[in-house]
Design a protein around this nucleic acid. Structure first.
Lengths: 171, 171
DNA sequence: CCAGTGTGATTGACGCGTCAATGTTGATGC
DNA sequence: GCATCAACATTGACGCGTCAATCACACTGG
């Protein structure tokens, strides 16, 4: 972790510029606002929260329209307990159903109810339109390209390449 | 709302491409992950949540290190009730203090306690370093430029220019 | 002066997400 | 078979954010 005695890596040793900090804050604020706007629109158009939408999307894309609750959690990258709480609420609203799993009596299988499927399919088109209107329509093709590139770099930085597994120098 | 009979505006009438949708989802996921990582780091380094940090930052930048609670809410762009709840929790933890306002007996003045000021100043440097490490270090100057440009466009799209107020054609 | 209206701030109810248990069942090794 | 351990799923407690009241006080016009 410490770098004493090492020749400085080409990266990192000065502080951030205030321009960089401003970009960071703007990024956070702007994405927060987009989430807020699109979430409100979705709720108004369809009665579904973004979280509901994510769950219903994963279920409706699943083979057989049903998933083990762990698989569902993995698919949408949620903690299992979060999912469990949310499924309780969605079950109360009649959007999904839980049945005991046939092959593993510990597990439970989550599936769409007719109501859930209907609400989801009613929500899709307006939601796509809203994303287009509030996000996609704001950018030129070049800006899209550039944003995709930035996001690739950020992702790459967050999750360093699964390297050839040969180069694990000790720190 | 309907567009029948109108010549199509130059903008918008086709659906989003799947590439655009992917960029949108990646944007949301990546920023969520950055918030998560930096929030966890901040909490571990300093015992403060991002929300705490925002409040303390606004207070420590305020003239006299105290603010009316409405001004504070406006500064950090929070709903007043959210702020009120959060100040309750921060007050219990001894980070801030509330006094009755001298000039308006309805109001309340929020100020930093010594503990709050100390915790905030201890949090700043590691937090800046974490932002640099997880975000700024991932991007080249060109990418910064490009991201700033994208964010400008998005902001501009969300909050259209306060135009000369002459051009309000009916839809 | 005081009725009516508006503003500053708080509260309660409720949905949400996280963390740390908990209960149950499957898998493993003996 | 049985003890042990890991995995599946849920629960409870608690901090958090939103929305719709609510309360106290300031302001305004008559």
């Amino acid at each position: 972790m410490s770098d004493e005695g090492l020749a400085a890596a080409p990266v990192a040793r000065q502080r951030m510029t205030s321009a960089e900090l401003t970009v960071w804050r703007t990024l956070i604020d702007t994405t927060a606002e987009l989430r807020r706007v699109l979430g409100a629109q979705l709720l108004q158009d369809s009665g579904l929260s973004p979280a509901d939408y994510q769950v219903l999307l994963a279920l409706s894309e699943a083979a057989d329209r049903r998933l083990r609750s762990s698989e569902l959690a993995a698919t949408i990258d949620w903690e299992r307990s979060r999912l469990s709480h949310h499924l309780n609420r969605m079950e109360r609203r009649g959007l999904i159903r839980r049945d005991d799993c046939a092959t593993d009596s510990r597990g439970s299988e989550v599936s769409l109810t007719d109501d859930g499927a209907r609400m989801f399919s009613g929500a899709t088109a307006p939601h796509m339109r809203a994303i287009k209107r509030h996000f996609a329509d704001a950018l030129t093709p070049e800006q899209f390209e550039a944003l995709a590139d930035v996001l690739r770099s950020l992702q790459h930085h967050l999750h360093p390449e699964p390297t050839t597994r040969a180069e694990e120098e000790r720190s």
